[in-house]
């Protein structure tokens, strides 16, 4: 191993340095890939809690409820002129994102409960 490294170092020092760097980078991303794979394979990590960056439409899509359910829960017109995030909506109404998120979550839960009881 060491004699081989010495030989390639003498033949092409620049390439050897870049090779070392590239191997380190590859190893880093390989470890990261496996770590993320294990993390996201756990179903508990897959339910996306409502976060400030999400839009009502995105939340509806993510939780598998119709867009209208989310818009009605937040008293929004069907087409509010461009997408807005939960953060923007909360700021506009002077409430915290959590308050809005709770309203929305309640509406989603109600809708899902209704879906389940339907024959």
């Amino acid at each position: 191993m060491i004699p081989f490294l010495k030989r390639i170092w003498q033949a092409a020092p620049v390439a050897t340095v870049i090779l070392g760097g590239a191997l380190a980078v590859s190893l880093f991303f390989a470890v990261r890939l496996v770590a993320f794979w294990i993390y996201w394979a756990d179903p508990a990590h897959r339910d996306q809690a409502i976060e400030p960056w999400m839009t009502p439409g995105y939340i509806a899509h993510s939780w598998g409820v119709p867009r209208e359910v989310a818009f009605e829960a937040l008293n929004l017109p069907p087409a509010p002129g461009g997408p807005r995030t939960m953060q923007d909506l909360a700021a506009e109404r002077g409430v915290s994102v959590n308050v809005l998120a709770q309203d929305l979550q309640a509406a989603i839960d109600t809708f899902r409960a209704q879906e389940d009881t339907r024959p």
Partner: peptide, 11 residues
């Protein structure tokens, strides 16, 4: 991560 790994391996 996969894209980073591929680029590293290419170099």
């Amino acid at each position: 991560s996969a894209v980073g790994l591929l680029a590293g391996l290419a170099v």
